[in-house]
Structure formats: C-alpha cells, structure tokens
Design a protein around this nucleic acid. Structure first.
Lengths: 208, 208
DNA sequence: CTCACTACTTAGTAAGTACTAAGTAGCGTA
DNA sequence: TACGCTACTTAGTACTTACTAAGTAGTGAG
C-alpha cells in the first residue's frame, strides 16, 4: 500500500516549470486524498506519484496543509468555471449570494450531471467533508464555509417555492446522501435516481 | 493535538478485569475515531485516553485493525438491541431479511429519534463510511455489507409502497445526507427536518 | 559563454508509527 | 502463604512522518 524507500526507483532528473509541476502535484494529490483521506496520505505518497522526492513536493506547497489548500483552491476555480458554463450564466452569479437566473431544477440537474462524470472529485468532497467535521482538521473552515455558501445557493435557486430555506437543506442533504450510495455502488444511475428524488422533494413546495 | 511521550503522566498501576478494560478501550476509541477517522488516530492516542500504555491496548485488541473490528462489533450489538426495543419487535426481525412488522414511517422515526440522541455515534458511522470507500480500508467489507443490509431493511419496511427498492435507496440517502448537515450544524432540528423530508419522499409512492 | 535563478536532490532531524519480547505485579484459588 | 494466571509495563525493533539545510543541475536572459 504505502511504498518504502527501497521500492522507489532511481530517478532521472526531470525538471519542469513550476506551474506545470504544481498542477501535477494537485492532480495526484486529489486522487490520493479522495482514496484515503487527508490523514491517510503522506507527502511521500504524492511525491512517488509525481516521480519526485518528498522535498520536491514541499518546495511547491510548503507544508502538508498547503497541499490541501492548493487542492481545494484549484477545485473551486475549476468547479465554478465548469458550472457557470453548463448553466450559461456568469461566474459572478455563483459567487455572490443574490438571486439566481436558473431554476432549482436546472441548477440541480447541472450539478448532478457534472458530478456523475467525475466520481473521483465527488469522492474527494465526500471523504473530506466527513473527515473535516473535526474543528482541528485543516479543511474544517473551508467545509464549514462551503456548507453556508452551498445552502444559500440552493435557497436562491428555490426562491420561487414556498419554503426556500427548508428546500435548500433537503435538496443538499438528498444529493449528498445519494452520491454516497452511488460511490459505494456505481451501478446506481445517479442522474435518473436524482430526478425521481428531486421531483418528490420539490413538488410539495411548488406554488401555482 | 497528539500527545507526546513527555506529556504523559507517570502512571500508577491500574489493573482491571479484561471485559471492563476492553469496554473502556472501545468507548474511548469510538470517540477518537468519530473525531479523526481511523487513519487519523494512533493506538497511543487510545492508550492515553484509557490511562494505560500502547502495549496495554494491544494486549486486548491485538492489532489496530482488531481495535476497529471490536468497535464495530460492539456497535452492532448495542444498536440492534436498542432499535428492537424501541420498536417493540424481536432482534431477529432486524437481522434476518424477511418482512418487517413495522411501517416505514415508524421504522425511520425510531432510527432518527435514536440517532438524534447520539451524535457521536452518527459521526463515527459518517466518517468511517466515507473513509472506507477505499477497498484497502479495514472497514471496507463491513460498510459494503452494511449498505446491502440496511437497504434491504428499508425495502422490507417499504413493502406496502409502489416501489420499495427505490424508496429504500432514497430514504437511506436522505437520512444520511440530513445527518451530515446536522453534524456540521447541530442547531438543525434533525427529527423535525426528517419528518418533513420523509413525508415528501414517501407520499408519492403510497398506494390507496 | 556566463550568470542568476530556481526546480530540484541528498542527507539529515526529531518525532511518531504499529507491534514484539520479556518481565512485573496484582488477584483468585488451593 | 504459596502459586498460577493474566493485566499490564518497559524497552526495544524497524519503519514512516513532516520538514529543513545545503548543495546541484537545468534554463533562460544578457
């Protein structure tokens, strides 16, 4: 599972521009953290995956916590760009907490459709979200803020319904929970299952 | 966070009967694993919490994996006893996968009511469930089996509805997700929020 | 071609990891 | 009161951990 020093092949020097190497580190770290959680990986693991030394990784991210920050910041960037593109709205609409120009149904559908295509990322968030319930965890602040931020977004999208705050919480919960089932059993059709579930949740609150 | 050897106070010998000590080890380990996950704790941490040496802990559980097994086995026992008592049914009804003599609504209500009173245990399961998505994790087999087992139980309780299998998955998902929201923000009224959510999910599938 | 820069390496440190072997001390029983 | 059992300790093993200091080797600009 964890490689030992004697396992590691003798390296040929492979120098790369910092941005490229950093991106590689983030990619590999994302996979590893999704698999084993932040406490479950070592800097050495990431270094091995990149084909450099542990000190080489630390040269780019400073500390282990810095590695996690880099991973999460990168995901924020990519996710916001991808989502706003899928929905055909400005990125600013997802960042500021005003109103949303898309319906709750469209918003959720886009989210789920995107997630269905990147189980690794969904897993990263699922694992880190649970792990970071501990206030001592380096991602605690990030995930606490995300909880507020995401709930507000759902509520904004549910502005047309009878009880946006409650809908937001329920939708958030149902989506998270369904993804956990799907991660454990990928045979589940995430999108179809979500459509059925969302229909049930939103319907009672629709205003005519 | 993690105590160092120099922190540890000089111990007075405190010998106890094996069953009592084992129970203490399980209790302390449960708390610690719920906080930091299985990869996030060390046997030394558990030993410190119990006021004995790490070798003392290993005397009772053998290996770190043995510790996790002991924790999970103990929880199974306690949970089944508690649930069957709350529902007024035989323990065997929860173990075998036949029909259930209680309605889905009553079954879920009992589950949620119990969980609302033991956030630490809910957290233990939430953290381990996510962490153990990795097939290498020592609790992988346990949580994979639990997924099947729990889904079957929900389906049995939903036998009277139009689509028991789908209902089971949706209820399982919604409950898990709502608990995650609640663990992060305990101000949420888990029972009330569940009642509203369950109503929405089950209603469309009810047969008259 | 030279030089500054920087992406890396090696070789450390001090601490923590799971786990073992061998011995010690308390307790129940004969 | 002696004896065996066993709950524990100390001291060790071999290894991993995050991180640092100092040096090396590619690279791009002058």
């Amino acid at each position: 599972m964890t490689s030992t020093a004697s396992d590691r092949p003798q390296r040929v020097r492979d120098r790369r521009p910092a941005p490229e190497r950093l991106k590689q580190i983030i990619t590999e770290a994302t996979t590893l953290i999704a698999e084993r959680g932040f406490w479950g990986i070592s800097i050495q693991d990431v270094a091995d995956a990149c084909g450099i030394s542990d000190a080489g990784v630390l040269h780019h991210v400073g500390t282990k916590e810095g590695l996690l920050v880099a991973v999460l910041e990168h995901r924020d960037e990519v996710d916001i760009a991808l989502l706003s593109q899928m929905l055909g709205i400005a990125e600013s609409e997802l960042k500021a907490d005003g109103t949303l120009s898309v319906s709750l149904r469209d918003f959720c559908r886009a989210l789920v459709a995107r997630n269905a295509q990147q189980p690794e990322i969904v897993r990263l968030y699922s694992v880190l979200n649970a792990e970071s319930l501990d206030p001592q965890h380096p991602a605690y602040a990030y995930f606490s803020a995300r909880e507020v931020w995401a709930t507000a977004l759902f509520a904004a999208a549910a502005a047309g319904t009878a009880n946006p705050a409650r809908i937001a919480r329920q939708v958030f919960a149902a989506m998270d929970g369904l993804q956990l089932r799907w991660l454990r059993n990928p045979a589940i059709d995430l999108v179809a299952e979500w459509d059925a579930l969302a229909e049930s949740i939103v319907r009672p609150y629709e205003m005519h």
